[in-house]
Design a protein around this nucleic acid. Structure first.
Lengths: 239, 239
DNA sequence: CGAATGGTGCTAAATTTTGACACCATTGAA
DNA sequence: TTCAATGGTGTCAAAATTTAGCACCATTCG
């Protein structure tokens, strides 16, 4: 029995029995009283809240609110969770958004610092809003997640992006644009980009974009994107 | 230097240098070649994807896609994340829902088993759907999360629930009902319950419910709740 | 007061981890 | 072909860590 397994057993026992004494736990997990006390200290160091009462009738009690879980997530999964929860908050205020945000903030903090920096920089480009109820979205396509890496690279390295765009009239054009922001109006995503040829901002619906290519040579400066009041940066939501 | 710290150092080094040899890593972390190989095996067992090339010019490489994060979450936070992502999926299909679900599944699996059982049983009572676009939700209140523990207990122990309900005409009634399901039509929550006095199912908007009390004496059997096609159980979404 | 409880320090014993070595398979350059 | 550089495994004794036992302290309650 390794230390880790024994500590898990102690947590399970406390959870099951409510209150236990050190001696009981020692008998249960087959270790000495001293070792159980060391384990209790280790668990407290890890963040478990364990109340204790000395004296006759005393004992140990695991704070039920502190029951915890650890999971190992990839950066892509964290990203997906962030977007989902932030979009949800924008679309409909749920009673749990505070808790979900707190959970996400913990996950985010645990990211390795270099990935965290990239993720934050990309999240800074993301804005969420709400589609006006009049729009019929039943026939709209979903964006292809396979497109995302190209966009992420273009944003982070501030490279020009070549895309093929099919507009509302089905006319197909080729563009070379500066990606400035991504706007999420669930379920639609828009690329907000400065079009140098037209000297103006354009919104491109992501499900109408195909064949994105990074222009390796040209870089650009960030511009201030004029968003309306009901569009909010996603970063505010995940803090 | 504990094993854990050394393994973290190895991951950092691989992330920084791209490719390293076992001998280089051993020198860097101050351990023997054999120990580094043991650590590599442990990291792989934990889910890190480490490519290796034997032979001259070979070495170890950490798959950048497998960069991972661990976070310690409370059950309430996991619950909030589950609800948020599932609701989001119902309201609007996002490109990442698969990834977010995968991340959540990992988190869910890491829950302590007794809490996991409770959470799953409660999730089995949850259904999501989409409010029809005609409904004006701008003036609707949010449910009070403080109510949830009473509902959760009533569901899990199948206890009758006493509530005070204020209906659409502002008429206040007292009910004693059997909670059968929760229906989430973002941003509104409904309690779907069998009302024995009226011998029928009733939908109660959660923001109109007050003073829920568990009836300690009476228990009930689960009933089949007749849901329409566009209402889906939440559990399907988080697998 | 005394028994039951949580908590700490110390030390020798028990256990686990580590390093060293031999060895194998693969690769690429000489 | 040959050889050096690499990843990978098995074995075993040495090193390091963990554990049990013990003494002891503080607190609580009957």
């Amino acid at each position: 029995m390794t230390a880790r397994l024994r500590q898990d057993a102690i947590v399970r026992s406390l959870r099951r029995n409510g209150t236990s004494t050190v001696a009981d736990l020692a008998g249960e997990v087959g270790a000495s009283r001293r070792t159980v006390l060391r384990d209790i200290k280790a668990l407290r160091d890890e963040g478990f809240v364990i109340h204790s009462e000395p004296g006759r009738g005393g004992g140990l009690q695991l704070d039920p609110q502190s029951v915890q879980t650890t999971a190992r997530l990839s950066v892509a999964e964290v990203f997906a969770l962030l977007i989902s929860v932030a979009s949800m908050r924008a679309a409909a205020s749920l009673p749990f958004s505070g808790l979900a945000d707190a959970g996400l903030a913990k996950i985010e903090r645990a990211l390795p610092s270099d990935k965290l920096r990239d993720l934050r920089r990309f999240l800074d480009c993301l804005y969420v809003g709400q589609l006006s109820p009049q729009v019929d979205i039943s026939d709209m396509g979903a964006m292809d997640p396979a497109l995302l890496p190209a966009f992420e690279t273009a944003f982070l390295q501030r490279r020009h992006l070549r895309i093929q765009y099919r507009d509302a009239k089905e006319a197909v054009t080729n563009r070379n644009v500066e990606p400035q922001a991504m706007l999420i109006l669930p379920p639609l995503w828009y690329l907000v980009a400065w079009d140098p040829a037209r000297k103006g901002f354009r919104h491109f619906r992501m499900d109408r974009i195909s064949r994105p290519e990074i222009d390796e040579d040209a870089t650009f400066q960030r511009r201030h994107v004029p968003f309306e009041n009901h569009v909010r940066p996603i970063r505010d939501l995940s803090r």
